Simulated assay, not measured.
Amino acid sequence: MDADTHARRERLVKVFGYAAMLCVLIIVGLPLYWIVMTSFKERPDIYTIPVTWWPAVFHPQNYSEAVQSVEFFAFLRNSVIITSILAGVKFVLGVLSAYGLVFLRFPGKNLVFLGIIAALMVPNQITVISNYALVAEWGWRNTFQGIIVPLAGVAFGTFLMRNHFLSIPAEIIEAARMDGAGPLRLLWRVVLPLSGPTMVAFAIITVVNEWNEYLWPFLMADDASVAPLPIGLTLLQNNDGVTNWGPVMAGTVLAMLPILVVFLLLQRHMIKGLTSGAVKG
């Protein structure tokens, strides 16, 4: 193959690569753009045909209406409480369980890991009826613990952290043990410092999933005392019997902002964590 042919192939690959990235950007970015623009439109402007991609007149009152029509800040508070507790519990349990599966010896360790893999394959919706019956029997409906406890499983986090811990060179672990490091010291002084990017990825994924959780809180919550923000947006949609999509989209933008900021700040660490397969000495 001559140099010109090789150069043409490289240019062709780059063109296809940029075209693919442009398609992905359009698929992901267009709905977000539509949501943001709709949040600034008046109701007649939303239903115009042909569709308008820019508000004829900016109507920021949709945001004040979204906040005032429902108990927005109560729902926001509940989302922060539920997400913070669930993310913290899942993070701690995921790290500790993965550490035990990799660095500790105990009978049935392989069976435990198979159980975790099986849990990953079972959709959460399958366990809704049994969990609901159990939580209702305990009297936990419309409580934070009724929402949080059934969602505190850590199968994904354990799987992610276990795979990363397996990539840590055995020489580092053996050297720490020869220096007299016990299990807790090995975890705190050796394993965790080598696992920063993966832990950030685990934390971000967990926070995003819990912030957007809808089905289980919808079944458990009866009012704004414990219902998270996704439930509040549903009430906003049905508030006056006829959906006014401007405030609904404004509420959606407000709900996305906290997670979007967190993701943009930590996305590099997340990518490193998901792609890390070795430790540099």
Rank of each mutant, 00 (worst) to 15 (best):
L76C: 01
G139Q: 10
V95W: 05
T127I: 09
S97Y: 08
T143P: 15
G88F: 04
I81W: 02
G88Y: 03
F75G: 00
I116T: 10
L101S: 10
G94N: 01
F75H: 06
V92F: 11
R141L: 14
I82L: 02
Y132A: 07
E71C: 01
V122P: 07
P107T: 07
Y132W: 09
V112D: 08
A119C: 07
T83P: 05
V80R: 00
I85C: 03
F75P: 00
L93P: 00
L86Y: 02
L101K: 06
T83M: 11
N124T: 13
Q125L: 15
A118T: 13
V80P: 01
Q145E: 15
M121T: 12
V70F: 03
F113G: 06
A98Y: 06
F113T: 08
W138E: 08
L134E: 09
R77I: 00
A136V: 08
E137A: 15
R77V: 00
F113I: 09
Q145V: 13
L111P: 04
Y132D: 04
F103M: 09
E71V: 02
F75R: 03
A119Y: 01
V102S: 14
S130R: 13
V135K: 03
G115R: 02
A98V: 12
L76D: 00
R141D: 03
G100N: 04
L111W: 11
V89K: 01
R141S: 10
F75K: 02
F106M: 10
W138L: 15
I129F: 06
V80K: 01
S84E: 01
W140K: 07
E137K: 15
N142C: 10
A118L: 15
E137N: 14
V95H: 08
W140L: 15
T127K: 05
S130W: 08
S130Y: 06
V80E: 01
A119T: 10
A119V: 03
F72D: 00
G94A: 05
L86P: 01
L104H: 12
V128F: 13
L134R: 06
T143K: 15
L120A: 07
P123F: 06
N131Q: 13
L114K: 11
W138T: 09
V112Y: 13
N131R: 08
T127E: 07
P107H: 09
I82R: 00
W138I: 09
V122I: 15
G88N: 07
N142M: 10
V95E: 08
S84M: 04
I85D: 02
R105P: 05
I85N: 02
E137S: 15
E71L: 08
I82T: 02
I126W: 09
N110R: 15
P123S: 09
P107D: 06
F72A: 00
I81G: 02
A118D: 11
V92C: 12
R141N: 11
S84T: 14
L120S: 06
W138N: 09
V122H: 04
F72V: 00
L76N: 00
Q145I: 15
G88L: 06
N110F: 12
F113Q: 07
P123L: 03
P107Y: 06
F106N: 10
P123Q: 10
A74D: 07
Y132K: 05
L96R: 08
G88I: 04
G139W: 07
A118G: 13
T127Y: 03
I129K: 02
N78S: 01
L134T: 12
W140A: 14
V112A: 14
L134I: 14
E137Q: 15
F91H: 04
V95C: 11
V89C: 05
T127G: 08
A133V: 13
N110A: 12
N131P: 05
L76G: 01
